[in-house]
Structures are given as structure tokens and as C-alpha cells.
């Protein structure tokens, strides 16, 4: 079977980790790795893997649009605002890994099917990918949930310069994803960055407030959701199953990265690249 050609814009941590995953895929191959500097670490790795590279970023694609069918954008929200209309005019299915929120929010375990009809989908945040599915599962059992709260703790070393400079985007976007996917308007997101050495593995807690919780049904729904996530994020696990304590339900999940380009503790980055890859693979299987 011929592999579908994809382009990756952005050669930083996310772009490079994604590249390693794409090259392992049965369905995809990277036909253009687009950045700004040939001497960046990501470019060198792409070169060694024999992947075509360019330092002209999206301009190289504009000159020769047929070399890719699906585009991943792993640059920044600002850059994606510039890229999005160009990619749309070229009719490329675009998976946006920046927090720009231009396209529809996509959390594959929840709404993959409806996202495949869009021309641009947004991968939300790591905390969103990890914890919102659990909230969604609980909400399916209990539409009467009155409050959701996500606390995401990540290693300082796995928070790139972009995340650190735009921490509000994480907080606001994760909260928005919770609200969009569950319709529980009273929701909150908190992020904690921990500099401990060795680095901590990405850890997420979801607190839920609901009257008379049906714990058995909740536990069952959450374990099904865990299985669904593990299909595309191998390092995903529920480490504390839904537990009623202090008049709230606490559920905790961890994400251990695959260690492709980024170390295993960077589960926060791995879950985004895994989710993006899953969207692309499903898209090419169903739509191309």
C-alpha cells in the first residue's frame, strides 16, 4: 500500500517527536519537514532519517503544493494564524498542534468522527487530551455533574519555551475544552510546573462534584475510556480509579511518553503527538 504524504511545519520538540512517529506509521510518510534553520537539532535528525527538509517553512509548500496531502502544524499559535488560511486555500487537511484554537477542538476519544469532516482541527492541550475524556465518560453517566476541575502537573523540563511564555493559553484552553465537551459550564483548569530531578511523569487529577454518584457505573465508564485512549496513547493509564472522598470524585491519570524523540517523562508532549498521529491515520484510512 502506498503511504500518504504528510508535511510537518515546525521542527522543534513537538515537530520532531511527531516526525519519528510518522515515519513508524504504516499509513503515513513525511514528504517535507518544514522549518527555519538547517542547523536546528530537529532538522539534523530529519536529515539523518532521509526526510526531505526545507528552511523556507510554509513557502516551500506554497511553491509545490502537491508534495503533501495532510499537514501538521507544530509551530506557534501566532504562526498558525498566518498558516491556516494558506493551508485552507490549498485544500489541505490540517492538524494544528498549537493552541491557536482556529479549528474545531479535537480529542479523538470523544469526537474524532465529526472532526474528519473539518478542514482544520485543533489538538487542544495536553491536559485536555489526558483529562477531558475522563470528564466526558463521567458526564455520560451523570449529565447532572455540577463541577469539573482538572489539575495537570508536568515536569519543568517538558514545558517548552512556548508553553512557559503562554501559560494562560493552557489554562483557558483546557477549561474551554472541558466546557465544550461536557457542557458543564462551571469548570476549572489548573497547571503546575514542577522542576524536580529526575523529572516527574505527567500527572492529571480530575475532580468531579455530583450528587449521589453512581460509583460502579462511573468506574466502568472510566475504564472503557482508558482502553479507548490506550489504543492511540500507549503510555496512558488511570492510576487512581474514580474514588469518592471528601464529597468529591477524584480520578488520576498519568501519561508516560513513548520516548520517541522526547524522554519518557514528557507524557504531556507524547499525548499530543500520539493524538495528532491518530487523527491523521484515521483521516487517510477513511477519506483518501
Amino acid at each position: 500500500m502506498t503511504k500518504v504524504k504528510v508535511g510537518i511545519i515546525g521542527t522543534g520538540n513537538i515537530g520532531t517527536d511527531l516526525l519519528v512517529k510518522v515515519q513508524r506509521s504504516q499509513e503515513l510518510e513525511c514528504s517535507l519537514f518544514m522549518g527555519r534553520r538547517y542547523n536546528s537539532r530537529g532538522m539534523k535528525i530529519a536529515n539523518e532519517m532521509g526526510v526531505p527538509v526545507t528552511d523556507r517553512s510554509i513557502d516551500a509548500l506554497i511553491d509545490n503544493p502537491d508534495q503533501c496531502d495532510v499537514i501538521f502544524d507544530a509551530t506557534s499559535a501566532t504562526a498558525h494564524r498566518h498558516h491556516a488560511p494558506i493551508l485552507k486555500s490549498m485544500n489541505k487537511f490540517t492538524i494544528d498542534l498549537t493552541p491557536s484554537l482556529i479549528g474545531k477542538m479535537c480529542i479523538p476519544a470523544i469526537n474524532l468522527d465529526e472532526c474528519l469532516d473539518e478542514d482544520n482541527v485543533n489538538m487542544v492541550t495536553c491536559g485536555g487530551q489526558a483529562a477531558v475524556p475522563i470528564a466526558y465518560a463521567i458526564n455520560q453517566v451523570h449529565p447532572d455533574v455540577s463541577y469539573f476541575e482538572i489539575v495537570a502537573a508536568i515536569a519543568s523540563k517538558s514545558a517548552g519555551a512556548g508553553t512557559r511564555a503562554n501559560i494562560d493559553e493552557f489554562t483557558q484552553t483546557t477549561k474551554q475544552a472541558l466546557i465544550n465537551m461536557t457542557h458543564v459550564d462551571n469548570s476549572k483548569a489548573i497547571i503546575i510546573i514542577n522542576p524536580a530531578e529526575p523529572p516527574i511523569i505527567m500527572h492529571n487529577t480530575l475532580y468531579t462534584l455530583v450528587e449521589c454518584p453512581k460509583m460502579d457505573e462511573i468506574k466502568h465508564a472510566v475504564s472503557l475510556m482508558e482502553l479507548r485512549l490506550q489504543q492511540y496513547v500507549p503510555g496512558y493509564s488511570v492510576v487512581v480509579t474514580p474514588t469518592f472522598e471528601n464529597n468529591r470524585i477524584s480520578t488520576m491519570v498519568q501519561v508516560t511518553g513513548r520516548g520517541d524523540y522526547l524522554p519518557e517523562y514528557s507524557g504531556n508532549l507524547d499525548i499530543i503527538t500520539c493524538a495528532a498521529l491518530h487523527v491523521a491515520e484515521t483521516y487517510v484510512k477513511r477519506k483518501l
Binding site: S156, R164, A165, I193
Partner: peptide, 13 residues
Amino acid sequence: GTHCTEADTTKEH
């Protein structure tokens, strides 16, 4: 404020 090693998370604010 922020944890003492994470000053860059306060840049935008």
C-alpha cells in the same frame, strides 16, 4: 508569583 525556578511562566502577566 511562581515556583522559584519558573520565572518565565510570569512573563506574559
